[in-house]
Amino acid sequence: MDTLLRRQSTEQGAQGSTPRPPRMGRWAVARRQIKNGWQLYLMLALPVIYILVFQYWPMWGVQIAFRNYNVVDGITGSPWVGFQNFERFIDSYLFWPIIRNTILLQGYELLATFPLPIILALALNYVRLRWFKRSVQMITYAPHFISTVVIVGMLFVLLDPRTGMVNNLFGIFGIEPVDFMGNPDYFRHIYVWSGAWQGLGFSAIIYLAALTSIDPALHEAAIVDGASKLKRMWHIDLPGIAPIAVILLILNIGSILSIGFEKVLLMQNSLNLQTSEVIDTYVYKVGLQSAVPQFSYAAAIGLFRSVVGLVLLVVANQLARRFAKSSLW
């Protein structure tokens, strides 16, 4: 009897309730979303294809770092040698000088150029004369659009020991001409500060954009309390752009071994080689410029640099997350 009553109540409850729509599967939901926004997915497909073709597909060739590659046998046909190329680079007498030159040059550039765009952005943010602000922005942005070849050519012309403007100015004061480009002690300074001049204004754009997102009410309250411009910069502006600055710092630390060989190679000569030889220029020389190109050896050095850069990026991200409460991921 009890069983019959429970069955009847269950049937009555089922008749009175609203039937639930069938649950859609994950693929059905995905198809619906693609159908509704196919234009956006079509736009997204172009950069995805670009990344797959030009970023991921070339990774197939990374295996030549573990092979004794030759053009006749191809990538898969070349004999496998394991970590022999990496051991050869680490055991080389050039290993520590190249690593030291790379870290010192990139570290010097990071310490010297990282705070400059922040200072410029903070200064421009408080300029009230619109024409003056635009003029400063134009003057500081313009060098970014000069090619590296032209920049290095300008350096050679200005610093020439016989006809350069700098040495001619020294001659007026009775100072002996200085061979700046041939002295290894001057190489890092010339490289870093010419790069700071070229990229200062363009790098400040990011911080200027970040400053516009700060609530003006914070500045109004600080002005009412009698805070000076320096105190407002320190207590309002800098904390407001700190997350952006931390992210850029993490990215710079991750690429500390990836200087880019174009400018270094153009400024390099036999006289300043002891401070100008970095990983990228060494890879270029052994991989392409040598009488017998050593593709596997060059690929191993490049892969070593990338792995170290990845480790530095992860460590810097973890430290930033722990101490600055901001990170890439």
Rank of each mutant, 00 (worst) to 15 (best):
F323Y: 11
D225T: 04
G74N: 07
S306H: 00
N36D: 15
V157M: 02
Q8I: 09
G82W: 06
S326E: 08
V314T: 04
Y141H: 09
A300L: 03
N167Q: 10
F323I: 14
P22N: 13
K229V: 11
P115D: 09
R162S: 12
P293H: 06
V127S: 10
M267K: 06
L312F: 01
R7E: 15
Y207K: 12
I51M: 07
P47R: 10
Y108M: 13
Y141R: 09
G201P: 02
L110F: 05
L94S: 15
F170S: 12
I146N: 04
L312C: 07
L169F: 01
A112Q: 05
R88M: 15
L313C: 12
L288C: 00
S276C: 03
F145W: 04
D280G: 11
L238K: 08
L266G: 03
G16D: 08
K133R: 12
G201M: 03
I250T: 09
F54G: 09
M24P: 04
W80I: 11
S17A: 14
V71G: 07
R67V: 07
G77N: 05
A242S: 14
G302I: 01
I146P: 04
Q12S: 13
M1K: 10
Q274E: 10
L313T: 13
Q33N: 14
F86E: 12
N36Q: 15
M43R: 07
R26T: 09
G107M: 10
T3M: 11
L288M: 01
F173D: 07
Y108W: 06
K263E: 04
L116T: 13
Y207F: 11
L120W: 02
V246D: 06
P177A: 05
I75L: 10
R232P: 06
I214L: 12
Y284I: 04
R26E: 05
E220H: 06
I247Y: 00
V286I: 15
I241D: 12
E220C: 04
S203V: 01
M138T: 15
I223T: 15
P22I: 15
L122V: 04
L211V: 09
K35E: 08
E109S: 14
L257E: 03
T3C: 05
I103D: 08
Q63W: 00
W38V: 08
G182E: 02
D280V: 03
N272V: 00
P58I: 00
Q55M: 00
I118K: 08
Q137C: 05
E11C: 07
A65Y: 01
W329G: 15
D215H: 08
D73I: 02
Q12M: 09
M43W: 08
T281S: 11
Q63I: 14
V308G: 05
W57C: 01
D237R: 12
F114R: 10
N85T: 13
T10Q: 14
I172W: 02
R305I: 01
Q289R: 03
A45T: 10
K325F: 01
F83Y: 09
V308Y: 00
D185W: 00
A112V: 13
V136N: 06
